[in-house]
Design a binder for these strands. Structure first.
Length: 763
DNA sequence: AATTCGAGGGTTTTT
DNA sequence: CCCTCGAATT
């Protein structure tokens, strides 16, 4: 008997060693179950700590798991195989870099690095970036890799796709040449390594006795294959997830993995965690009712024994500005009642919505924190510093080279670099190696830069990691550059913070005092028993060899790429929390405001046309609702400033899916949401409808005549492609007139009346 | 080499 | 409307 667990949690923790799926609803204690199971497996002697493989998506979740585990068991967490997909794959690839066909010090490209690598490639190859936009190519390449596809596996059904595949191939060749690996590549390479190399595959299949996966609904095709491959015939997979919280389809996550896993692996061994320990009854009932509108579910109903609590409050305001103001007034009142600021969150569908709320909070002098900005390791000055450090590790990293070769400016212009690039391509070598071939003054400046790098490389050998970074900041000229920049003060602070971060990192890795540029020999290979902290690969008696540990510098660079760090810690701790609904997943607050519940915004208009898009939006709303512990407010605005113009939208269909018994409208709620009859057109009914803002353009009441047709707000129309809809906004006149039309099936569209082929249904 | 101007694009995002 | 990126300008 494990203390404090309910029967379902208990059952999940103590499941037999077979594949199983745990459907863990929001707030049902999923992380607790996962970590308790790990502890249980260890304590009952079914597994050694080092034979467990636990996978998460974020570093934060991995840390959380380790923290809880070490609180339950007196073990060191150092050599445990607990981490993110990317982190664990990185570990495999470093250990077996030779077998994976990589240099030991391969660098990891983050998304921004990858994008600039693609841009550079397109430029070098003279490819039209209008026809093949770098962003699209990045999406194409990552999408392919996440499906486990190499260029040769891909079918070219048309010339455009053929070219895309070519670009993918060229990109891959460039990465190989430069010794860099992007995020998707980490996974694919590790997967291919295991597929192709039987001794290594069998070794790890033998080694891992249990595999545990968190947030299973977020896995993509490749991650799923990776897991089942590693599990082999012996290791059971304990998959925990919630199909109702699957909100990352747009980046490759496939909920289908859950169904497939249930059918082919778990085979009915499914445990549902439905008791919710977070939210009060009315909130849960709203969440349940909403999500029950989705067809495609494994099925689950949350309940609580902690009482109904307060009803969900809904309020409609005339404009986004007033919406924000109302929220801030309510926040003020709650703070006066003793609520903590960090226990209040304002959630929105898209980042653009934060501005209005920020504005109102600022005016009210209430501290707030916006999540989702630039992260520490993504800042320009940090990226520059890291680029210098990477060059010390691998001077053939052209991405890093180009980033800093003329930053700070040292007289190396575009012309020289073009020349250098041509030479490098001609000889098939890196930019670094091509330097001696460049004639003239440009060649001189380049040579000086190379010498500077070489000097720093040499000096690195006798310095500790933080010392080295400090040294590089000085000798690269970065520090001087930002000192001379009148806007550079913050950047200098961040660079100092980088030195701190390195010191902390070195301390945690027990590397202080060691020279940063020299590899540390990993003890244990060949002598120790296989399940120890010193030999996390368990290779001692396997006959396999593992590469020596990375130098502290290389390890730090890896850390920097794999963990971009906190979102800026602005304001104090005690601040109102502002974030997108996506960013709020996994978090909880006493009070939550979910904003902008309007058709076209939430659900977002782009999602309506996508396959399964509406259901994903609904899951998003479900996530939003289930973030609240005690108080939940849902707000909407009749008009909203978007892309420079005011838009008018109808209230979100999701509001009509919340049961009356559990909500309380603080503003009048109108019966019908969808205009079934001509009530829209009646000017006198406007103040009482939810659909039309009182400040709709004046000309709207008189309407617009285009050709034979007269349009006014409320006019029912039909479009050959979009189907039936209602005019909810008008602007311009004559042939230039535009109408905003709310279509029944495809959402809000703005159409030019002179162009669109509309039929008037209801005048 | 630094600054300024204009075009384009704006859903969600971790590693 | 507001931000980013690249090109044109001085």
């Amino acid at each position: 008997m494990i203390e404090g667990l309910n029967p379902q949690q208990q059952a999940a923790v103590t499941l037999s060693s077979e594949h199983a799926l745990v459907l863990a609803g929001a707030g049902s204690g999923k992380t607790r179950v996962l970590t308790t199971r790990m502890a249980w497996l260890i304590q009952t002697g079914q597994a050694s700590p080092y034979s467990l493989l636990a996978v998460t998506f974020t570093n934060k979740a991995a840390r959380e798991m380790l923290t809880r585990l070490s609180a339950m068991l007196p073990i060191h967490t150092r050599g445990l195989w607990v981490g993110t997909f990317h982190g664990l794959c990185n570990r495999l690839l470093r250990a077996h870099h030779r077998d994976a066909g990589l240099s030991q010090t391969f660098q990891i490209l983050d998304s921004a690095d990858q994008l600039s690598a693609i841009k550079r490639l397109l430029k070098n190859e003279g490819i039209d970036d209008e026809k093949y936009p770098p962003r699209d190519m990045q999406y194409f390449i990552n999408g392919a890799k996440e499906q486990g596809e190499r260029p040769d596996d891909m079918e070219a059904w048309d010339p455009h796709r053929r070219r895309q595949i070519d670009i993918y191939r060229l990109y891959q060749e460039q990465c190989e040449r430069e010794g860099v690996v992007d995020f998707a590549e980490l996974l694919l390479r590790a997967y291919e390594l295991l597929v192709r190399n039987a001794p290594i595959r069998e070794h790890y299949q033998r080694r891992f006795s249990h595999i545990l996966v968190d947030e299973f609904q977020d896995t993509n095709a490749l991650q799923y294959r990776w897991l089942t491959l590693l599990a082999g015939a012996g290791a059971p997979i304990f998959a925990v997830g919630d199909d109702d919280q699957s909100i990352y389809a747009f980046r490759g996550a496939d909920v289908g993995n859950m169904k497939d896993f249930e059918r082919n692996y778990a085979r009915g061994r499914v445990i549902r965690l439905e008791q919710n320990y977070r939210s009060s009854g009315h909130i849960l009932d709203c969440a349940n009712a909403l999500i029950s509108n989705n067809e495609d579910r494994l099925g689950k109903n949350l309940w609580t024994d902690s009482g109904h609590g307060e009803p969900v409050r809904i309020i409609e305001q005339p404009s986004d500005q007033l919406e924000a103001q109302w929220i801030v007034d309510e926040i003020k009142a709650q703070i006066d009642d003793g609520s903590l600021r960090q226990e209040i969150a304002v959630l929105y569908r898209s980042n653009a919505q934060s501005r209005m709320v920020e504005h109102a909070l600022f005016r009210a002098a209430i501290p707030y924190k916006v999540y989702g900005g630039l992260r520490f390791f993504e800042r320009q000055e940090i990226k520059h510093a890291l680029a210098y450090l990477r060059l010390l590790d691998n001077p053939h990293d052209d991405t890093s080279w180009l980033r800093v070769v003329n930053f700070p400016a040292r007289g190396i212009g575009a012309r020289t670099l073009e020349q250098l690039g041509d030479l490098a391509r001609e000889h098939g070598i890196s930019l670094f190696r091509a330097v001696p071939f460049v004639p003239g003054k440009g060649g001189g400046n380049l040579a000086a830069f190379v010498q500077r790098i070489q000097e720093m490389r040499f000096e690195a050998q006798s310095l500790s990691l933080p010392e080295l970074i400090e040294h590089v900041l000085h000798h690269s000229g970065l520090l001087t550059h930002y000192l001379n920049d009148k806007e550079g003060a913050d950047r200098i602070e961040n660079l100092k913070e980088l030195v701190n971060a390195a010191a902390m990192f070195a301390a945690e890795e027990n590397m202080e005092g060691l020279p940063a540029g020299v590899a540390v020999q990993m003890p244990g290979v060949g002598a120790e028993p296989s399940d120890t902290e010193d030999d996390p690969f368990g290779l001692a008696d396997s006959g396999l060899t593992v590469a020596a540990a990375l130098s502290p510098l290389a390890a730090f660079l890896t850390h920097a790429s794999l963990e971009a760090g906190e979102n800026q810690a602005q304001a104090g701790q005690d601040a109102i929390q502002l974030m997108t609904v996506h960013a709020a997943k996994g978090l909880e607050f006493d009070t939550v405001f979910v904003t902008g519940l309007e058709e076209g915004l939430f659900p977002h208009e782009n999602s309506i046309l996508e396959q399964g898009g509406l259901e994903e939006e609904r899951r998003l709303m479900y996530v939003a609702i289930t973030r609240a512990r005690k108080k939940l407010y849902v707000t909407l605005a009749q008009s909203r400033m978007l892309h420079g113009k005011t838009r008018y939208a109808m209230r979100s269909r999701f509001l009509d899916e919340l049961p009356d018994a559990h909500v309380k409208w603080l503003s009048p709620k109108v019966r019908q949401r969808m205009p079934e009859s001509g009530w829209h057109g009646d000017a006198y009914s406007r103040p009482s409808t939810n659909a039309i803002a009182p400040m709709a353009p004046r000309r709207a009441s008189s309407g617009v005549t285009v050709g034979e047709q007269h349009f006014r707000i409320g006019t029912g129309v039909a479009h050959p492609r979009f189907g039936e809809g209602t005019v909810i906004g008008l602007s311009g006149s004559g042939q230039d007139a535009q109408a905003q039309i709310q279509f029944r099936d495809v959402g809000l569209k703005t159409l030019a009346l002179g162009v669109a082929k509309l039929t008037i249904l209801v005048a």
